[in-house]
């Protein structure tokens, strides 16, 4: 078992290195191009780092949500949390831009965090009324639709010059990141993942069920609050910088559980981070290169690979949770 995990970590790490090199090297600009190194330094490298850091964050956020709801198909996108973050961020951007105020990166994250928080509280209220996994997920998908529709509505009425960037962002994309943004995202993600690591012990107990966790001394209310706080911070950071990205938060934790053959948080948190990074690097490569120079939205690619995993979980073990 231990050997399997070490090998899995090595494979994931090597995949990330390989995909990161491909991300930086591949594209329409060739090394003969005089601006090649500038393109690498100011466009491809920040974009690759964003996919790596934010992809990892998204998968860890999804894993924490799955622990919270005791539900293997919970995730920030599926539960409408990413779309909630998107809506409030879009609102803040447009309202402030109309007044000539440019929203800073921290402002973006705060707006996104507020949106994620509102959506999370909504989904928590729904979860109190139903224990059925499929109902909760359907409610989350509907919440996501409502938030996305409202976002589209808001964007439609925004000034022309705001629309182009907002439209790309609201579809989900790692493009347009600069090194300053990457550094900011990295700081927030490191904080979030560190918060997740501090929850390793109670998560291990919580996986046996709420009552058993309480019986070994876990303060359930405090624990659940911290869990949702860390998860929201991570998914809000991703949405603030890259927009909503679908299915990574659901699919990657499931794939990692299968790869590592464990649910233990001490193994799963680093595994999800590496898995999410590899998944997003791979998806971003396809988004960039499949129909170059036309770019696909990152969510279009992650959905193609991620949604079947959700169906697989629902058809398989998911039935145990009904």
């Amino acid at each position: 078992m231990k050997k399997r995990r070490i090998i899995a970590y090595i494979i994931l790490t090597l995949s990330i290195v390989f995909l990161a090199v491909l991300s930086v090297m591949l594209g329409t600009a060739s090394p003969d191009d005089p601006s090649f190194f500038i393109i690498i330094k100011s466009i491809r490298l920040p974009r690759m780092l964003a996919a790596l850091i934010l992809g990892g964050a998204l998968a860890v956020s999804g894993y924490l949500l799955q622990v919270f709801f005791g539900n293997p198909i919970a995730g920030p996108f599926v539960l409408g949390i990413s779309s909630g973050a998107k809506l409030v961020t879009a609102l803040a951007l447009i309202l402030l831009l109309d007044r000539g105020i440019h929203l800073s990166a921290i402002g973006l994250v705060l707006a996104s965090f507020t949106g994620a928080g509102i959506a999370t509280v909504t989904i928590l209220m729904i979860s109190r009324r139903t224990r059925r996994m499929s109902v909760l997920v359907l409610a989350g998908v509907m919440l996501g639709y409502i938030c996305s529709s409202l976002t589209d509505f808001v964007i439609t009425f925004a000034d022309d010059h705001n629309i182009v960037n907002l439209h790309n962002w609201s579809m989900g994309s790692f493009s347009g990141m600069n090194m300053q943004g990457v550094m900011m995202a990295a700081a927030l993600v490191v904080t979030g993942v560190f918060g997740g690591v501090l929850l390793i012990k109670p998560i291990g107990a919580y996986l046996t069920g709420e009552e058993y966790a309480r019986s070994v001394g876990v303060d359930i209310r405090v624990f659940r609050f911290r869990l949702i706080l860390v998860s929201s911070l991570l998914s809000a950071t991703v949405t603030a910088f890259a927009g909503p990205i679908s299915f990574v938060g659901v699919a990657v934790p499931h794939l990692m559980r299968r790869l590592f053959r464990t649910s233990l948080p001490g193994c799963m948190i680093p595994a999800c981070f590496l898995g999410g990074a590899a998944f997003c690097l791979f998806s971003d490569l396809i988004a960039r290169l499949a129909f170059a120079p036309t770019e696909l939205s990152i969510s279009a690619v992650t959905a193609i690979f991620g949604a079947p995993v959700v169906i697989m979980v629902l058809m398989g073990r998911g039935q145990h949770y009904e």
């Binding site: 107990a205 996986l207 046996t208 069920g209 001394g217 876990v218 464990t262 649910s263 233990l264 145990h320």
Partner: peptide, 18 residues
Amino acid sequence: VRTDYFTCYDTVASGRYP
């Protein structure tokens, strides 16, 4: 306990939490 990929050893080990 309904957690997937959670071994019996992991389950017993959770009793050492305190």
